[in-house]
Design a binder for these strands. Structure first.
Lengths: 335, 335
DNA sequence: GTGAAAGCGCTAACAC
DNA sequence: GTGTTAGCGCTTTCAC
């Protein structure tokens, strides 16, 4: 039924150890023996058992990935970049969604700890609570944080320039004369969000404007969340004439809310969105965005992880990738 | 360093077997012994080793998923539905992208066979070549095909009503007087694509129109592929006044091509797209689409797989999920 | 109810 | 070069 290395050895008339060496490509094997073993394996349709191998080698050739939601194009693109890099080295991705819920993230980490992934990539829900992640250090299993940092956690982290991107977005709106800029945000527990908010505030202060906390509208990191958060700002009598949305799912919701209220971009509401997506160029008007190198983010994370898996024991490294303001037609003058 | 069940047993002053029974929740254990074991495990921070467990139990609690590209929102949504269902039963997804390349798909299947996934979900690249999938039957590892069938492969398959959806799309265009309908398609090797093309042709014939093969423009299943395939049709002197795009990535490309050529929807080109995406409602005009229940597709696949994993040995089942034409504003009269 | 012991399929000393 | 053998951490008979 299932062909083991013993069956191969028997057929090739060598010992199990020799068969293992021939198949595993290590140690000394005469070429005659090697040929016999490989042929026997071929004939029997031998498949090495990765579980048995993992038990003895301590490596599963598997990498855990925990993101908020793989349906989110941002995470999907990053996951793809990561997969491309690690698959070249024979690793496979184990995927889990946290739904931006700390408890779910903890459970996923737990599953991956017992599944014995060789390494772990997480876009952590919380920038503050890293208890469950510290446990991983004890396992001394490489961990790389993707897109978000965790306070006090000294591990490899690949981020984008969130504050700088937000600053550019706000300055763009300021240049049009907007001084009341509404923000559609998810929880600032998320470190990238916190950084974007910081960039927003700093840009305002630098322009001599004191940020109004009432202009930051928070909701879950979903389309519905973006819709409601945007709506809350737009139905106010003193509604802001400019909106800055902090992530792509929420941008879609915000655009829908603007439409539903019969408002027009950019005449009634100027809009800048964080994160570039295909459709932002397809709508009318095309939307001005802060673009981030998403696939590169995933690849950079993968490279870092592979380096660790190869034994790199250097100090934790923090990488920042550049963001870029792409000006299109969704911003007009404040009236 | 690493805490094993032996350490727990020693601390609880019972045998390894008793510790295993207490921890595993099987066999007879006195409640006193159980308490002692659980407490010892707690104190030592014991984590069961899933690899060792898998070696002996033959189950890794892991499910392999192979899709064309996780970045494609269609696959991402299906993956999410699948993950939600199987995670409830303690399974984790192992993910691989085939890029709609048969050789890559074969390699992924191979990896998953040696990784010993408990089950496999594939959106197969080819409806015709199923050699590598037949090998899985021999392993008697459950396999469920998602969104696409393979000729001659008697395994559980969950599909959507592609032909019916395409028919509805074409009939909608016919009703506007279009009799030359261009198709932006990926390879008809893909079974869902083949079915959509079949529905397209049948609807035409039923209306007394002989399908013109020259109106079917084929490209890779990407945005760029959609762009080029659409462009090829639209630059013809006798360009079709209506376009039917067969998948979501290609729809985005086609819309871009239409724009770039300075054409307007629906005045110059009517458009119906297969697969509903958020942005199709955000563009102007909103696009008429054939919607498919994507998340449900993933969930249905998950349920089927779980049933098999629980031991269901019934005959292979083929499920079809309904598709729905959602009429918006991207179709106008032929002129 | 509990313990001893035999593997699961493989890797890797170590002896020859 | 090759074979023997001892585990990796766990589940699971089978005695007691």
């Amino acid at each position: 039924m299932v062909v083991t290395i013993r069956d191969v050895a028997a057929r090739a008339e060598v010992s199990q150890a020799t068969a293992a060496r021939a198949l595993g490509g290590y140690g000394y094997v005469s070429s005659a023996a090697r040929r016999a073993v490989l042929q026997a394996a071929e004939e029997l349709g031998y498949r090495p058992n990765a579980v048995a191998k993992a038990l003895v080698s301590g490596s599963t050739r598997t990498i855990g990935l925990i993101v908020g939601d793989i349906e989110n194009p941002f995470f999907a693109a990053a996951a793809r970049g990561l997969a491309d890099v690690v698959e070249d080295e024979g690793y496979t991705l184990l995927l889990a969604n946290s739904d931006e819920d700390l408890e779910r993230e903890r459970r996923a980490v737990d599953v991956f700890r017992t599944q014995l992934v060789d390494g772990l990539v997480i876009a952590p829900v919380s920038g503050n609570d890293g208890h469950h992640l510290r446990l991983l250090e004890a396992d001394r299993r490489p961990l790389v944080l993707m897109d978000r940092a965790v306070r006090g956690l000294q591990v490899d982290t690949v981020l984008v320039d969130n504050a700088g991107g937000a600053r550019k977005a706000v300055e763009h709106l300021l240049a049009f004369g907007h001084d009341r800029i509404g923000v559609v945000s998810d929880a600032d527990e998320i470190s990238s969000t916190a950084e974007r908010l910081r960039g927003y505030r700093r840009a305002l202060r630098d322009a001599g404007i004191e940020p109004d906390p009432g202009l930051v509208s928070v909701g879950p990191s979903t389309r519905a969340g973006g819709y409601e958060a945007a709506r809350a700002l737009l139905v106010r009598v003193d509604r802001p004439r400019a909106l800055f949305t902090l992530n792509n799912f929420m941008t879609a919701g915000a655009v829908r809310a603007i439409r539903d209220l019969g408002l027009r971009i950019p005449d009634d509401v100027a809009l800048v969105a964080f994160d570039e997506l295909e459709w932002t160029t397809l709508v009318d008007p095309p939307i001005t965005v802060v673009a981030q190198p998403v696939a590169e983010l995933g690849r950079a994370v993968g490279s870092r992880l592979l380096a660790r898996l190869r034994g790199d024991a250097g100090p934790a490294r923090r990488t920042r990738l550049r963001t870029e303001l792409i000006v299109r037609a969704s911003c007009g003058p404040a009236r």
